[in-house]
Structure formats: C-alpha cells, structure tokens
C-alpha cells in the first residue's frame, strides 16, 4: 500500500461488489436481449403517439436504484429517451 492509494477512487473489492449487484439483477430478471428489444419497441410506439423521439438514441436497461421506502437498493427499469420534437397536441 502506498501513498497513491489515497487518490484511488474505489477499491477493487467494492468495484466487484457493485458489478455483481448489477449483474445479478439482470440475471435474476432473466431479461434476454430479445425481451429487452421488445420492451424498447413498445416504449417507442407508445411515446411516439405524443412526441417525436430519437429511436436510435433510446437506451433502456435494468439497473438498481435507491429504494424510497426501505433501506437499500431495488431493481429498476431505466430508460433514456431523447425527444426530438414535442408535438403540439400535448
């Protein structure tokens, strides 16, 4: 261990723990790429009714988020949907 360690952001042990947590969420959810693709397409369809979105730039993934009720994290479906143009109907 040297002085440089102080400047390291994260220990490899906690990196491993964080990677595992994410990995197990997607493993347990058993979301195959096919299922994720289907969810993605459905989301595009629904949102497109109301606004013009960038389907290419859409990113969805299963991740973890801080739970509001209990201490700890819960799995969450994260979607980042870039909007190209808001339609006037909304």
């Amino acid at each position: 261990m040297g002085l440089m360690d102080i400047f390291k952001k994260k220990s490899s042990g906690s990196v491993a723990k964080d990677r595992l947590k994410l990995l197990l969420v997607s493993d347990r959810a058993d979301c195959s790429p096919d299922v994720m693709e289907a969810i993605k397409n459905d989301i595009i369809q629904v949102i497109s009714k109301y606004m013009e979105i960038d389907a290419e730039g859409l990113d969805i993934q299963i991740t973890q988020t801080e739970s509001e009720t209990t201490n700890g994290t819960v799995p969450a479906l994260y979607a980042n949907i870039p909007i190209k143009d808001l339609k006037h109907t909304c």
């Binding site: 220990s11 042990g13 723990k17």
Partner: peptide
C-alpha cells in the same frame, strides 16, 4: 489481508449479495 485493504469482497459482502 486482501479483504482488509479492500481488494477482496468480505464475507459480509458475499452474504449480503
């Protein structure tokens, strides 16, 4: 020794996961 310097997950970490 590795757990102590943060380079290995601890028993507690593994149990929690």
């Amino acid at each position: 020794d590795m757990v102590k310097r943060g380079d290995m997950m601890s028993v507690k970490d593994v149990c929690e996961i």
